[in-house]
């Protein structure tokens, strides 16, 4: 049983019954390799978890803000597109107005002082230019 206890004693610790050495040399003890790793992992996990906990709301807020900004940009673009389409329609309307035979005739007669020809002469290439 004592053997077992001795075996279970931590490395570097004096086993019961053993006298302490007189000199004050620091006692070195061996640490199981896995413990610090676990602790470090716990710590890292804790930190990461903490960061995640703190950062998640910020991230959500950031994502939301990004979405809103994107939506607003999209709305603005849609608005701009609609405005451009309306402008295009307005220009088409003005072009049709300007190209209407009625306006061309009115401009020719009233602004440019042109008169309507009494007879229309159609050219005929078979008449040798006569």
């Amino acid at each position: 049983m004592s053997q077992a206890k001795a075996a279970q004693a931590k490395p570097g610790q004096a086993t019961p019954g053993q006298a302490k050495p007189a000199s004050a040399r620091p006692q070195l003890k061996s640490v199981p390799k896995s413990r610090p790793r676990f602790r470090k992992l716990y710590f890292v996990s804790f930190v990461v978890g903490l960061i995640a906990l703190v950062a998640t709301p910020f991230a959500i807020v950031f994502l939301h803000a990004s979405l809103l900004t994107g939506q607003r940009d999209l709305d603005n673009l849609r608005l701009e597109l609609n405005e451009q389409l309306e402008l295009r329609q307005q220009l088409l309307y003005e072009r049709s107005q300007a190209a209407s035979p009625e306006l061309i005739r009115a401009t020719a007669t009233e602004v440019l002082g042109m008169v309507v020809a009494e007879n229309v002469t159609y050219l005929n290439s078979s008449s040798n230019g006569q």
């Binding site: 329609q89 072009r95 049709s96 190209a99």
Partner: peptide
């Protein structure tokens, strides 16, 4: 395809 009627804002 010349406009004869259109709707404007």
């Amino acid at each position: 395809k010349d406009l004869l009627a259109t709707s404007l804002i």
